[in-house]
């Protein structure tokens, strides 16, 4: 089977519904899936934020303090910690006036991976390369 690429595309803002959060937890679950695979088989997820999906990615979210729920920021940091590719659409960040400097990283957790702000064309490429494309 080799490597199976999956693209998780988040197109809705976080928090009001569970949909966009599920993309992150599903993408994170690839680590669990690998336990069930044969030698030589891998799953490579890519988590992409486009459109209004780029909302809710800011640093300093206080979802746990306010509502007792895990923040999107925390989920993204966990994604980076397990070396998941996280792409954020450059054009959509610019459209909403969100500076790249407000995006979180997981350096404090020891992660080397960082969010990559990329043109939509690169997200399109990730979708084309993926065997499974899932929209959230």
């Amino acid at each position: 089977m080799g490597d199976v690429k999956c693209a998780f595309i988040v197109q809705r803002p976080q928090y009001k519904g569970e949909t966009s959060r599920l993309a992150m937890t599903h993408a994170l679950a690839y680590q669990t899936v690998e336990i069930l695979l044969e030698d030589g088989e891998t799953v490579t997820p890519t988590l992409c934020f486009v459109g209004e999906g780029v909302l809710g990615l800011s640093k300093g979210q206080k979802a746990m303090e306010m509502y007792g729920i895990t923040s999107s920021e925390s989920h993204i940091k966990n994604c980076l910690l397990v070396d998941l590719d996280v792409f954020v659409c450059k054009e959509d960040l610019e459209k909403f006036g969100i500076p790249e400097s407000t995006l979180p990283d997981a350096e404090d957790m020891g992660a080397e991976k960082q969010i990559r702000v990329v043109p939509f064309a690169e997200i399109q490429k990730a979708m084309e390369e993926a065997k499974h494309v899932l929209f959230f």
């Binding site: 976080q14 909302l55 800011s58 300093g60 979210q61 979802a63 306010m66 509502y67």
Partner: peptide
């Protein structure tokens, strides 16, 4: 509370 949740 909703502003803080979203990091604002």
């Amino acid at each position: 509370e909703d502003l803080a949740t979203r990091g604002f």
